[in-house]
Each structure stands twice: as structure tokens, then as C-alpha cells.
């Protein structure tokens, strides 16, 4: 993993991570002001995983995402204007205001949907990989899931099927160490979730998910391997979320993590450590990074502005988009 990083790549990884971070900070602000309806699950702290993985993909590679999915969508090329519009429930949101934070889908750029049900996207990713195999295409599927999802039965079923059918899917476990309030120290008897890959008959690896370069380089190598060998792979990225499980968790006062622990991981911030590294290595200048920060902040302000100016759907649009092949009489309204 000593491949020399080019300036373009370094700046792009940095830009995407900052975009993920600033996006989430803005989202939290809008949730707290009740401008975003409901709540969201912020990706703050985990940016290196989504950015590292998705930067190593082609446009036509597919992903399934999770409830904590904004970072995945942004990293795969999602347009934050339509993401903000979705979060504000507007008609030109990614999902026309019908999905909200946990369900952003954009098949045009390979996003088969984020998912509000933990683990549910994993067999869907395997199904997409089955299509790739049957249609003899050469793209791959990434299935993001968390340490919590690793204990869902359907994830086990999906990994086993991917293995016996030799499918081009990479299971990316974002182990942020907590399933809501439950620590992996409680829910797992093994140190690394990647060890489970052995039981299915394919390879696995655990890496530092706070290091974007490590994630990027590993993913590059694994994607090539999976593409050429048509075998699944389980890549576990150890990471940490700085926020609660969801935006307003603080008020619940759950205290399942110590301040010391949170501060420790904040000191390993993926953005700060990466910028320090590329500055120290002389790959870029402080000014170049500052310029990116400013660009991102402007981009976010413009996107929020775009979303705010977007139209709300008609309430009766609630009865649209249910079926691809339509029939009169369905869906039914709940009244006459």
C-alpha cells in the first residue's frame, strides 16, 4: 500500500471528505431548526470509508447503502442539490420527497438505494451481482453495512449465496463499533468481523477506516481482484461516528460512550489526519486545501438555497409512483 498518491487524487479525496462532513453539519443544523422533517443519521467521522471506497469505483459499479447513507451517496457522485431537496421533502428531491434521508436512490449513478432496515440492502446487492454475472458484465457491487447489520440473519444468507455463486460483490462493513447504543464488545465474540468471510469461503480483511488512503488503495486492489476472479470479498473498515445514532440523540442522555472515547477518535479525524499528511508530504499547499473548503461551503449554501426554492409536491402526489405498471383502482385512498 505504498502507491504514491497523485496531487489530483489527494485533492479529490480531500474535497469529497470535506463535502461529506460539511453536508452533514448543515443537515444537523437544519434538523435542529426543524427545517428538515424527522431526523437523520449523520456520517460524521466515517468519511474516509465512503470516500475511499467509492473513489476506487467506476461510474457503472453499483452500491447499496444504509440508514447512515449520505456519505455513500455523495461519494458515489450524488448531486447534493437534489439530496438537500429530498431532505426538505421537495418535488425535485432525489425521491420526489417520498423517501427522505434514509432512502436516497439514484440508479443512473449506480445507487440502488439506501435502506432504513439494517442489513436489508445486503441481499439486494447480491442480487445485483447475480445480474452482472448472468449478463456477463464486468462491473462490481459494493454493499455497505454496519457492525450492527453483521448480526442480521439475512446478511449471513446473502454472503453465503454470493460465495457459492461466485459473485462480484464486495461487502464493506463499516464497523463504527456501535449498533445504536450496543457496543461490538457486547454483540461480537470475535475481534474482527472480516473473520467471518472464512466461514463463507472467501477472503476478508480488516483495515483502518479512518485512513482514506488505506481504504482507497485496498478497495482498488480488491475491486480488481473481484472483477477478475468473480469472488466476493469482505472488507471491514474500523471507524467511528462522532455524532449520536441520530441527530437528536443527545437529548436522550444515553451515555453509552465516554467523552474520552469520543475525543480519542476525534483526534484521529480522517479529514484532519489526511490533510496533515498531504501537507507534510508536500503534495499540496494549505491554500489549495483552504480553497477547497471555501468551494465546498459555497456549494452547500447554493444547494440548500436550491432546495429551499424548490417546490413542494402536491399532497395528492402521495398516491403516485406506487406501481410501474399501473391499473385503475390502485393504490386505494383511505377514504371515499
Amino acid at each position: 500500500m505504498t502507491e504514491k498518491i497523485t496531487k489530483n487524487l489527494a485533492l479529490e479525496l480531500y474535497r469529497k471528505m470535506v463535502l461529506c462532513r460539511k453536508f452533514e453539519e448543515k443537515v444537523a443544523e437544519l434538523v435542529n431548526k426543524n427545517e428538515i422533517y424527522g431526523t437523520t443519521h449523520e456520517y460524521v467521522g466515517e468519511e474516509a470509508v465512503a470516500v475511499g471506497v467509492c473513489s476506487a469505483l467506476r461510474n457503472n459499479d453499483l452500491i447499496t447503502s444504509t440508514h447512515r447513507g449520505h456519505g455513500h451517496i455523495i461519494s458515489k457522485g450524488g448531486d447534493i442539490r437534489y439530496m438537500f431537496a429530498e431532505l426538505l421533502g421537495r418535488v425535485n428531491g432525489c425521491n420526489k420527497g417520498k423517501g427522505g434521508s434514509m432512502h436516497i436512490a439514484d440508479p443512473g449513478i449506480g445507487i440502488l438505494g439506501a435502506n432504513g432496515i439494517v442489513g436489508a440492502g445486503v441481499p439486494i446487492a447480491v442480487g445485483a451481482a447475480l445480474t452482472i454475472k448472468i449478463k456477463k458484465m464486468d462491473n462490481v457491487v459494493i454493499s455497505f453495512f454496519g457492525d450492527g447489520a453483521s448480526n442480521q440473519g439475512v446478511v449471513h444468507e446473502a454472503m453465503n449465496m454470493a460465495s457459492i455463486w461466485n459473485l462480484p460483490v464486495i461487502f464493506v462493513c463499516e464497523n463504527n463499533q456501535y449498533a445504536v447504543s450496543t457496543s461490538v464488545k457486547y454483540s461480537l465474540k470475535i475481534e474482527n468481523i472480516s473473520e467471518r468471510s472464512k466461514a463463507y469461503g472467501f477472503e476478508g480483511k480488516t483495515i483502518d477506516g479512518m485512513d482514506v488512503l488505506e481504504v482507497y488503495n485496498n478497495t482498488k486492489e480488491i475491486v480488481n481482484k473481484v472483477r477478475s476472479e468473480n469472488k466476493p470479498f469482505l472488507l471491514e473498515c474500523k471507524t467511528y461516528r462522532y455524532s449520536g445514532h441520530f441527530t437528536a440523540e443527545k437529548i436522550l442522555n444515553l451515555n453509552y460512550r465516554t467523552e474520552d472515547e469520543i475525543n480519542y477518535y476525534k483526534s484521529k479525524c480522517p479529514i484532519l489526519s489526511f490533510s496533515t499528511k498531504i501537507l507534510n508530504d508536500g503534495i499540496c499547499t494549505k491554500k489549495e486545501l483552504d480553497d477547497i473548503d471555501n468551494l465546498v461551503i459555497n456549494q452547500i449554501d447554493e444547494a440548500v438555497d436550491f432546495a429551499r426554492k424548490s417546490k413542494s409536491p402536491e399532497p395528492s402526489d402521495a398516491l403516485k409512483d406506487m406501481y410501474a405498471t399501473e391499473y385503475t383502482g390502485i393504490p386505494q385512498k383511505g377514504w371515499i
Binding site: 453499483l62 447499496t64 440508479p107 440502488l112 438505494g113 436489508a120 445486503v122 441481499p123 439486494i124 446487492a125 447480491v126 442480487g127 445485483a128 451481482a129 447475480l130 445480474t131 452482472i132 454475472k133 448472468i134 449478463k135 440473519g153 439475512v154 449471513h156 444468507e157 446473502a158 453465503n160 449465496m161 457459492i164 455463486w165
Partner: peptide, 26 residues
């Protein structure tokens, strides 16, 4: 065997596989 696909005893998983396959062109 590419079009007549036996699955292990994994009903939830195979249903998800069906969805993923359908979303992506089968």
C-alpha cells in the same frame, strides 16, 4: 444453471436477491 438457480435454504436472502436482480435488469 445461470437461469435455473437453486438457492440454499435462505428464504429472506433469496427474496432480497430477487429484488436486487430485478432492480438491475433481470
Amino acid at each position: 444453471p445461470d437461469r435455473v438457480i437453486d438457492t440454499p435454504i435462505s428464504e429472506a436472502g433469496l427474496t432480497g436477491v430477487g429484488t436486487g436482480a430485478a432492480l438491475s435488469g433481470l
